[in-house]
Design a protein around this nucleic acid. Structure first.
Lengths: 405, 405
DNA sequence: TCGTTTAATAAACAATGCGGATTAAATCTG
DNA sequence: CAGATTTAATCCGCATTGTTTATTAAACGA
């Protein structure tokens, strides 16, 4: 915590006002005053400044005058045109880009189905740059109108430094991808973050965890992602790195070697193991085409016992890790997502059973585990939210390296 | 975060000044100004108020006038007599009590070697009350001079509510022990907390983690304790409970059933397993006398292979859990303590090896694992620190239910 | 003794939040 | 339809705070 001066005081209260408008807008000044415990005078002063800066606007159409007497309330809301940002999600098999306004509404988006593996950093950066420029043009905007870009990618990302420590996307380690992109975009600042953190923020702002200050997000994609919201803040390890779920161990080194969760329950490991199990059978074709997961889901649907056993094992491993995470964080909600979870109860069932079995009695009922089917744009909306947060971010713990204005 | 007003501003800055004096005192006003980034005027005003309230004093003896010209600095330090608090540690086999002054110096302490198991809550409260009154008297103080009492105990404790959710000490669950003690002490407010949290705070204030904002504390006693310092704050789960290390799982439910860490590596489980291993041999006597751990350490020293194997297994389980914790929190330091660790490398060696083996390469060198041999009074000093912290606690996240003044 | 140097405080100033009075804009009432 | 009533928003004066710029305090050196 920084030392306090009048400026910080104003920054804190301005944040609270902005937050109330974002979460509950359109909202009147009196209601902001109620919700934030700030005096009406202060709210008036702050909203006046925000209106002046163009960050918020008054809603012209009176809204619901529900038979109330007295002077009508003037409703305030975020000015969608106050800023525009671009969110990018890198996955092993595609790039997703979206342009959003200040309310994180998606104005335009595009998906580039490109295998990024084995591409050099600069080639990837080229692709991302092209995607951003096209997406911005699609939204009818010029690059000069973009206030920031955030790129989400799987792996270990150090947001502050703008460096990707390790990712399946890059062959190298310690790739300074934020600087790489900022250079190319000519004046527009780019930041990077772990992809799960983006979706965690998106869940917090618009998704199943609206207003929930503590929850976990677990994404089962090619790799495994873990996002932690704790006390309303994204949780990062001491070094600023977000923890990597795939690095968690699920089996002690008892003779036959230890197991990382990534090699027990990720989409990649599931496909690899299924391929081995089904080797030489008629299904092999699907795996060659890269349609391994679809095949797994199909066979699970049909009740193929070896696939069900595989999913049972994977679910057990995931459930083991989730139970330990619940033991540590005691979150009221755990949100899971990923294509592999579409296998109905074949994977989710074992997860739930294992968690229920392993949780200590005292924590038996604290966590609600839900599966969320993410739309393709949630990542980008999260990236947008991450950038927007910097524009009116909580002043008490500096969130990032962004140097807008 | 609360909304900001001038009062909060002052509270924040007063905290920073107090914190600087506590950590670096005796310290001059200019140096406080340097360290806190506050203006000299502000520091002057705040220290004047603190002097007025008697919380700090000026050091009379000039100190080291190291050949400097100019007006000499007036050194400020905490006023030891500003407040007195009592810290209590409950363990299964003894009660430790200590009275400290405002600097958390121990003025008097006593140890009551009593088996608390199977005692009723009110009997335990009686014992604690007697211990507190005697210890306060030993320090030459009256109960009226005591500003607060903090009781640390193993298990799951909800500090805010003052309720012990579960503990090996109490047969019952949800024991409102803080209220129980406050009632008995006639006006002196008692709080409770997990015992590891107390020692974690003590390590932060006086121990091996002075000034370190991120570290883990792992205590191997009869039960297993986990304390987490994250960003300079004690980490608590979403429900305000501290996580219980013993509840972490170390083996997935693969056929032969799952294993909780508590049943693999706690002192209790070590002794039980060793007793089984050595059943019918000449060592059995020691276990009957409750000297099981000493016997284990003795045999480990001698190189008894079955005991070494047992410790190897326990170390593997602990290392497994620690590796996962490091993966999540990436703390630069992990402090371990407990009588079982006195077995030289027999237990610590396997722990280190397992951690090294299981950590992902990217985290290989971030954490320094050390063993700390705690004095008996560190718990009490931590309890004192916990109470003192409330007297000049960080105002931005309310720390507890204490209502002093 | 007087100048120099450094520490600590005092005075003037600007920013902030708050409470009470005031204005604004609608409905209600007769 | 005009004035009373009600509620929202703002204006004004005040207290508190931190900072900058002077001023005083307390030592040493020549």
């Amino acid at each position: 915590m920084k030392t306090a001066d009048p400026e910080l005081m104003r920054a804190i209260n301005r944040f609270h006002v902005m937050d109330a408008i974002r979460r509950f807008g359109p909202i009147s000044r009196v209601e902001i005053s109620d919700r934030t415990q700030l005096s009406a005078t202060t709210v008036s002063a702050i909203t006046a400044a925000l209106l002046d800066d163009g960050l918020i606007i008054t809603q012209q159409l009176g809204g619901i005058r529900d038979a109330a007497r007295g002077r009508p309330r003037v409703m305030l809301e975020l000015n969608p045109a106050a800023a525009h940002v671009v969110g990018v999600k890198l996955a092993l098999d595609q790039i997703t880009v979206a342009t959003t306004n200040f309310r994180a509404d998606v104005l335009s988006s595009l998906v580039l189905p490109i295998r990024l593996q084995r591409q050099s950093v600069s080639v990837i950066a080229d692709l991302v740059e092209d995607g951003i420029r096209r997406c911005v043009a699609d939204a009818g905007l010029a690059m000069e109108q973009i206030s920031g870009v955030c790129v989400g990618l799987p792996g270990v990302v150090e947001r502050m430094a703008g460096v990707c420590r390790a990712s399946p996307i890059f062959g190298e380690r310690d790739v300074p991808f934020a600087a790489e992109m900022t250079d190319r975009l000519g004046g527009v600042v780019a930041t990077i973050d772990s992809d799960v953190n983006l979706v965690t923020l998106a869940e917090h702002w618009f998704g199943q965890a609206r207003g929930l200050d503590d929850f976990l997000v677990i994404s089962v994609e090619l790799g495994l992602g873990l996002g932690i919201m704790h006390n309303g803040e994204l949780f990062r390890g001491a070094n600023g790195l977000s923890p990597d779920l795939g690095d968690l161990m699920v089996r002690p080194p008892a003779g036959n070697g230890s197991t990382r969760l990534a090699s027990a329950a990720s989409e990649a490991s599931l496909v690899a193991e299924a391929r081995e199990i089904l080797a030489g059978e008629e299904h092999e074709h699907a795996f060659r085409l890269g349609r391994g997961l679809e095949k797994i889901l199909e066979l699970a649907e049909k009740g193929e016992p070896r696939i069900l056993a595989l999913l049972e094992r994977a679910g057990g491993a995931l459930g083991f890790a989730i139970a330990n995470l619940i033991t540590l964080f005691a979150p009221p909600k755990v949100i899971m997502a990923g294509a592999a979870l579409e296998a109905g109860d074949a994977l989710v069932g074992p997860i739930r059973r294992t968690v229920a079995e392993l949780l200590p009695p005292s924590l038996a009922d604290v966590s609600d585990i839900v599966v969320h089917h993410w739309q393709d744009d949630i990542w980008a909306r999260g990236a947008a939210a991450m950038t927007l947060r910097d524009l009116y971010g909580a002043p008490w713990n500096t969130t990032g390296p962004v140097v807008h204005r």
